[in-house]
Amino acid sequence: MGGSLRSPSTSLTALWVAVEGAAEAGADTRVIDLKRLGLPFYTSEHGIPPSARRLADTVEAADALLWSSPTYHGSVSGAFKNAVDWLALLADHDPPLVMAPSSPGRRREPRSPGAAGTSHGGTRHR
């Protein structure tokens, strides 16, 4: 799942590289481009939109997830956070997670989004 709305998106490019590697290793892969998914802003006051249901169903069926988001002010992008908000509402599934930050931040070192925590050079495994 890639969470950048920018064109071209470096985080989506990084995600494609990682997904291609997973596919070469034998994984059945699918990329969720959040820009193309077109999720509305999360709110519990409205019904569940079809795009959020498709996202949740795809994530629920996954054995593992690979997420890629730019880091803005030490956290994930707004589009990425919005998708996670929808997933919290829709899915009770805990697949393995790998965060792959694609922007170095101010310190010129890899930084994992603050909401996800860090270990092992900016990558978190669950």
Rank of each mutant, 00 (worst) to 15 (best):
49 P>W: 00
48 I>G: 09
32 I>C: 05
32 I>V: 13
49 P>M: 00
39 L>G: 06
41 F>N: 08
49 P>N: 08
48 I>R: 09
25 A>E: 10
27 A>T: 04
21 G>H: 10
19 V>C: 08
38 G>Q: 00
43 T>C: 09
32 I>T: 13
45 E>N: 14
41 F>R: 15
29 T>Q: 11
52 A>R: 00
44 S>W: 09
36 R>V: 13
43 T>L: 02
37 L>R: 10
23 A>N: 02
44 S>H: 14
31 V>P: 01
22 A>I: 03
52 A>M: 07
45 E>G: 05
48 I>W: 12
31 V>K: 06
45 E>D: 15
40 P>F: 09
28 D>Q: 13
39 L>C: 07
37 L>N: 08
27 A>L: 05
23 A>D: 02
32 I>P: 02
51 S>Q: 14
27 A>N: 06
37 L>H: 11
34 L>N: 09
46 H>A: 13
47 G>Y: 04
39 L>K: 00
18 A>N: 01
26 G>E: 03
44 S>D: 08
35 K>A: 11
37 L>F: 04
33 D>N: 03
42 Y>I: 13
17 V>H: 01
30 R>V: 11
18 A>Q: 04
20 E>R: 07
23 A>Y: 03
50 P>L: 12
34 L>R: 04
24 E>Y: 03
37 L>W: 09
23 A>H: 05
33 D>V: 02
47 G>E: 12
28 D>Y: 11
24 E>V: 07
33 D>I: 00
41 F>M: 15
25 A>W: 09
29 T>P: 03
47 G>N: 13
46 H>V: 14
50 P>Y: 15
22 A>E: 05
41 F>Y: 14
39 L>R: 07
50 P>G: 14
17 V>G: 00
27 A>S: 06
33 D>M: 00
17 V>T: 02
25 A>S: 12
44 S>T: 14
40 P>V: 12
32 I>N: 03
24 E>R: 07
36 R>H: 12
50 P>F: 12
29 T>V: 06
17 V>D: 00
43 T>D: 13
38 G>K: 01
20 E>K: 05
32 I>M: 02
29 T>H: 04
46 H>Y: 10
52 A>C: 09
44 S>N: 12
33 D>G: 05
30 R>E: 11
24 E>I: 06
17 V>A: 02
39 L>D: 03
24 E>A: 12
44 S>M: 06
29 T>K: 10
34 L>A: 07
31 V>S: 07
29 T>G: 08
47 G>T: 15
46 H>F: 11
50 P>R: 15
28 D>L: 13
20 E>I: 04
21 G>Y: 04
49 P>R: 00
23 A>T: 04
35 K>H: 09
22 A>Y: 04
37 L>Y: 08
46 H>M: 14
18 A>K: 00
20 E>V: 05
52 A>Q: 04
32 I>E: 07
44 S>Y: 02
39 L>Y: 13
37 L>D: 12
32 I>D: 08
23 A>R: 10
31 V>W: 06
41 F>C: 08
40 P>S: 11
26 G>T: 03
21 G>E: 10
18 A>V: 10
28 D>M: 13
47 G>I: 14
28 D>R: 15
